[in-house]
């Protein structure tokens, strides 16, 4: 029981046959060799597999690939402009906002998603005024980035990097 899907991944259109049971994450990693999103828990509990799915941050481990026929996926490997890293990635390097690096592609994709959400004025659980403009205060960044676990404990630097990356 399988199907065929077309995905646009990091700017390239790819077709592949997948088992219905294959998650988007496994389709990317095993099917297409796109190993930038990582499998840290496979249950939506760590955020390491976060990508930008049709422009918005999403985990890829809790979705079957067949559902996403025609979707656009951008991973951390496709965020930059050619050889140039995305400003969030540069900020992660400057702030040393990672150690082992395993959660990092997910953190980076999530951060880019957060910046878009803030730019669009979307509130978070800690936003005092739901109808006012969204801010990028440290508290806001912490809350918005809490779906990305980091066992090395780089959180403090991640918050700095996300805010730097917005500039």
């Amino acid at each position: 029981m399988d199907g065929e899907v077309e995905l646009r991944v990091d700017g390239r259109t790819r077709r592949l046959r997948v088992d219905n049971r294959t998650t988007l994450l496994d389709a990317l990693r095993d099917g297409l060799g796109v190993t930038s999103p990582k499998k840290g828990c496979d249950h939506g509990q760590c955020g390491a597999c976060t990508v930008l799915l049709d422009g918005r941050r999403a985990v890829t481990c809790l979705s079957f690939a067949v559902v996403h026929d025609g979707a656009e996926v951008v991973t951390a490997a496709g965020l930059g402009d050619g050889e140039r890293l995305h400003p969030v990635q540069e900020a992660f390097l400057d702030r040393d906002a990672f150690q082992c690096g395993f959660c990092t592609p997910g953190q980076v994709c999530s951060a880019v998603g957060v910046l878009d959400e803030v730019a669009a004025g979307h509130p978070s659980a800690v936003t005092a005024d739901l109808t006012g403009p969204a801010e990028l205060s440290p508290e806001e960044v912490r809350e918005r980035m809490s779906g990305n676990l980091c066992r090395c404990g780089a959180y403090v630097r991640i918050v700095e990097a996300v805010r730097d990356g917005a500039r």
């Binding site: 941050r57 999530s110 998603g113 957060v114 978070s124 779906g147």
Partner: peptide, 12 residues
Amino acid sequence: LLSGASGQLRTL
């Protein structure tokens, strides 16, 4: 809604 799950889960 915003206190449930995480941003990248709420997208889905």
